[in-house]
Simulated scan of single mutants.
Amino acid sequence: MVVEQACGGRCWEVALEGSLLRIGGLELDLEALSGPEPGRVTVYAGADGAPTLEATDWLGAEVLLPGRPLEAVPAGEQGYEDEEGQEVRTPAYEYRMAPLNLELVQVRLFGLPPQVGEQGGEG
């Protein structure tokens, strides 16, 4: 995983355990969020500064997920009769998404909004 701080200021902490990504207090299951096409997950700062997936006015981070190609997995055999009535058996496959390549995941962190009282008080 590549973590990039896109601008200065305070940012959330980022940790990866298996395919579980923690951004601040928000947990994202990267396997569940990824698919055959590349994807993007945006994380916003809520009114209290906590990370949320609900759109707000403040973008705190974005996670860029690589596409997961389909791979053929053996699933037994299938049989059919040919033109001469002979039974023919051929391998059968089912297609599944390949595991997520975590090395290709990119996390961009943006500066968070100032906290209440950080710029000289509340009033």
Rank of each mutant, 00 (worst) to 15 (best):
A50Q: 13
G18F: 03
V43A: 06
P66T: 01
L33Q: 06
Q5H: 03
W58F: 10
T56Y: 00
Y95C: 04
V2Y: 07
V3C: 09
A45L: 08
D82P: 08
T42L: 07
P74N: 10
Q86A: 14
Q106A: 09
E4C: 07
Q86Y: 07
P114H: 12
A45S: 14
P74D: 14
E77S: 08
G49C: 12
L104E: 04
S34E: 05
R96D: 04
I23S: 00
R96Q: 06
Y44D: 07
P66K: 09
Q115K: 11
G117E: 11
G60D: 05
P38Q: 12
V105Q: 02
L26M: 02
Q119A: 09
Y44W: 14
E83M: 14
C7W: 11
L64E: 13
G24D: 00
T90S: 13
E103F: 06
V2T: 09
L30Q: 15
V14Y: 02
W12P: 02
N101G: 01
Q119R: 14
F110R: 05
A72G: 02
L20K: 02
D57Y: 01
P36H: 04
E17G: 06
E118N: 07
R108A: 03
G79T: 15
P69E: 15
T90N: 10
R10K: 05
R68Q: 00
R89E: 14
V105G: 06
C7V: 15
A47T: 08
M1P: 06
Q119S: 07
R68I: 12
E87I: 13
D57K: 04
V107C: 13
E94G: 05
V105Y: 05
Y44G: 02
I23W: 00
A47D: 15
G9P: 10
G8A: 12
Q86P: 03
Q115T: 03
Y80N: 09
M1Y: 10
G123Y: 11
P91D: 14
G24W: 04
P74F: 13
P51L: 07
A55P: 03
P69V: 12
L65H: 12
R40M: 00
L112I: 05
E71L: 08
G18S: 04
G8L: 13
S19Q: 01
A32M: 05
A47P: 10
A15E: 15
Y93T: 09
A92Q: 03
A98Y: 08
A61F: 00
L65S: 08
R22V: 09
G67Q: 07
A32K: 01
R22N: 11
V14W: 06
E87C: 10
R96K: 11
L70E: 12
R96W: 08
